[in-house]
């Protein structure tokens, strides 16, 4: 709990992804929209937003993602008698880890 992500950071990453997606889909319909843009533009093209609670939960989700990866890799490292988490340990847990998220 003491160490988590910044809400603003996650928010801006989300917004980046959404705006990227929006421009991708808009490019196809841009020609059509150019003629009929005058009406109904504000409603249709309004970007997606996230409320503050949703952002907090997203931060928690990504935090759990990171800590879970560390914990699983640490388990393997410990089983091998190593004090340091190396890339091979991460490799071992990766398939199941990615299936779980």
């Amino acid at each position: 709990m003491e160490n988590t992500f910044d809400d603003g950071l996650i928010d801006s990453i989300f917004k980046l992804v959404w705006s990227r997606k929006a421009t991708e889909t808009n490019e196809d319909t841009e020609v059509v929209n150019a003629n009929t843009e005058a009406a109904g533009k504000s409603k249709k093209n309004r970007p997606t937003t996230a409320n503050s609670r949703a952002l907090k939960v997203s931060c928690e989700l990504v935090r759990i993602f990171v800590t879970e990866a560390i914990q699983r890799a640490a388990m393997i490292a410990e089983a091998e008698g190593s004090r340091k988490i190396e890339a091979t340990h991460l490799e071992r847990i990766l398939p199941q880890f990615l299936l779980d998220f």
């Binding site: 160490n3 560390i70 890799a73 640490a74 340091k84 988490i85 190396e86 340990h89």
Partner: peptide, 19 residues
């Protein structure tokens, strides 16, 4: 990196940079 180092420290482990 900050989160993962804190987590590794909690477990009494070290974490290498590439990981």
């Amino acid at each position: 990196i900050a989160i993962s180092e804190a987590e590794a420290e909690k477990l009494g482990m070290e974490i290498s940079k590439p990981v």
